[in-house]
Design a protein around this nucleic acid. Sequence first.
DNA 1: TATTGTTATACTCTATAACTATA
DNA 2: TATAGTTATAGAGTATAACAATA
Lengths: 156, 156
Amino acid sequence: MRIDHEIPIALRRAYLALHRATDSAFVKYGVTADQFVLMASLARDHALTQRQLASRMSSDPSTVRAMLVLLEKSNLVRRESHPADARAKTVALTPAGKRKFQQLWKVGQHIRDTMYEALQPHEVTTLIRLLNQVSESLNSAGDESSDQLPSAPARR
Amino acid sequence: MRIDHEIPIALRRAYLALHRATDSAFVKYGVTADQFVLMASLARDHALTQRQLASRMSSDPSTVRAMLVLLEKSNLVRRESHPADARAKTVALTPAGKRKFQQLWKVGQHIRDTMYEALQPHEVTTLIRLLNQVSESLNSAGDESSDQLPSAPARR
DNA sequence: TATTGTTATACTCTATAACTATA
DNA sequence: TATAGTTATAGAGTATAACAATA
């Protein structure tokens, strides 16, 4: 009952340490850690739809929308109707958003450096590989119906 | 600019996958993933003070208090004044809380199984070790004043 | 019919600041 | 003076359900 709780505990601890370090480094720039992740997705792939964004961030469309509304207020992000699909909207960083992202990237560099200096180069690749194995197992397990909890709907 | 974003991304993805899987498994029991972590801390170490609990959960005392208020309403947790320190309170699971925790532990077993089956035994220990190296590096870095952002206070 | 996004709504977690009581 | 916890307050993220417009 103790051993198989260690991965969840260690994972939670590491994620929260990263999230808090990021939040507190960014607070004076008016951007949260999660908003930074959203901006990073847009910096990598320009002009995603909201649904694409949600899946990249492993988040919910209505959550993403709430975040976009906040980011639009700060003029960091712009939504435009999709050229090919009138239902959809494309989301992109504004020029100000791109500048802000560059700035935040630098501000956060010491956090990434700290993490990477704590690991050997081969440990970095191992850690990434193992984390991805964990994510994939959980995500694909979520697709099938659970064999432990057969029938009840997962409602709220 | 791409390589040193991979740990944060993989860490976030794995943590959120775990958190969501846990939340959705527990929703019909009226307990969140974070509340489960709190209960697990109390199941391991009976009768912690609120501050001890906050540090075990790497959380904030006022956050913990808000969670405790909710858990007390559900009669899962009980606070009593500390025998030796009249300022402090000890927090413990109620009998109902202990039963609920046992139940949730079983309900969540398939999630832990999924994660552990995705890894070799030696990978489990490696993953835990690497995650802890990351956590420790970030937590100890937070103590010293940053050399990148010399003076400004980290206020809100 | 299925999909994209919006709206309304509600709850949890998070965290600061000012405060009371105690050490 | 420092510490434990409370209170008030605020905001961010999360997610469901009902809905409109479009594919």
